[in-house]
Amino acid sequence: MSVRIADGVIWLDGRCLVEDAETLLLAIQQDSEAPVDIAGVQRLHLAVLQVLLVLKPKLRGTASNAFLARHIFSHFDFG
């Protein structure tokens, strides 16, 4: 499971594939205040990224994947 909710935080881990988009969408809709921790993401499907772009949840953590850190998450506000 790449999307998991624990301690009021939505954790993204490993390979976030297309089917994770819906799970993430539901998770954020359930608790729009919950931060999304992206430190463990190794791969991010565009469908999952679209959910983050549209719902704009609070993000935290630093992506260890260089492509994601440089080209994707650098455009988000971490607050």
Partner: peptide, 22 residues
């Protein structure tokens, strides 16, 4: 840059997670 195809991202309510809008 990942940009919204229609000029703006869909509303949070109307997002269709399996449609590419980028």
């Amino acid at each position: 840059a990942v940009l919204p195809r229609d000029g703006q991202w869909p509303d949070a309510e109307s997002i269709e997670p399996f449609a590419c809008v980028s």
